[in-house]
Nucleic acid binder design. Sequence first.
DNA 1: AGATTATAGATGCAATTGCATCAAGCTTGA
DNA 2: TCAAGCTTGATGCAATTGCATCTATAATCT
Lengths: 152, 152
Amino acid sequence: MTKTAMPSPEAIKVWARLMRVSRQLIEQGEEALKDSGLPPLAWYDVLHELAEAGEGGLRPFQLTERTLFAQYNISRLLARLEADGLVEKLKVADDGRGQTIRISAKGRETRRRMWAVYGRSITELVGHKLSADELSTVSALLGRLRLPPAMD
Amino acid sequence: MTKTAMPSPEAIKVWARLMRVSRQLIEQGEEALKDSGLPPLAWYDVLHELAEAGEGGLRPFQLTERTLFAQYNISRLLARLEADGLVEKLKVADDGRGQTIRISAKGRETRRRMWAVYGRSITELVGHKLSADELSTVSALLGRLRLPPAMD
DNA sequence: AGATTATAGATGCAATTGCATCAAGCTTGA
DNA sequence: TCAAGCTTGATGCAATTGCATCTATAATCT
């Protein structure tokens, strides 16, 4: 059993700023989307993953892993997305429990419109605040905080 | 009217990692607190601000500003904290609408115990992953993403 | 095979959040 | 001074989240 020490002042500062900046980013993103009459960020996250996955789609449990949303949250979010016609649920052949989720044309379109709005927030709150070099530095260091660490 | 361009790939990467890392940090913090039978992170944030404010306490609207929680959220959170005896609501002399919130001894003790648990998560997820220099670099750059920017 | 354990996804119920709005007290300005 | 408007904080109601648990199917073990 190894003792875990309390965080250094430097670590605390990183944590505090990480919390504050991410909260801002979320808040302003949600606000911008709402002002444009678009769905909340959580929908974007899922549509984004599904769009990247392409025609093959993804299983709900894969979405759970990638987005870090809880299982029951994904389950209900997908129900709402399906009700809105943004995704389709397909039976999967080799596993009777499972299903595959595929983004629909309407889903892609919604995602595109959300990105147009949300991307602007990112530019304002992130892109315009730091140089390209600084952005690379931050993302490299944040990559090492990720679980699992990003290796680029 | 100035056009806002879409974010560069570097900005997107920073945003994506920021979101992921902060989500992890929150999730693991919440989990650690729950496992120890302690209240959720939101309580910590408020107790922390109140502890820093000292005997003078803070007005609810000041908490709203500092924590970035919505006004109605603070209102109800304070009701729960008061019900648990962690804070006291005091009438404020010069403004009949307002109140001052002051942390109680029990509140300080709860905060202390939460920090013992939460701090460990921060050490594991942040402190142990980067050197002191790297931590300083990240916090300086994140400071510039803050609104308003931190000036240190 | 049959029993046991694990995994995928859904869901009832309680707690929390978001939204809209309210009540009460301040402030301003004609 | 008093009407109009602003600020502080609370709250009813709907939507979402968290928790625990459930059903169904797969995988493993004897």
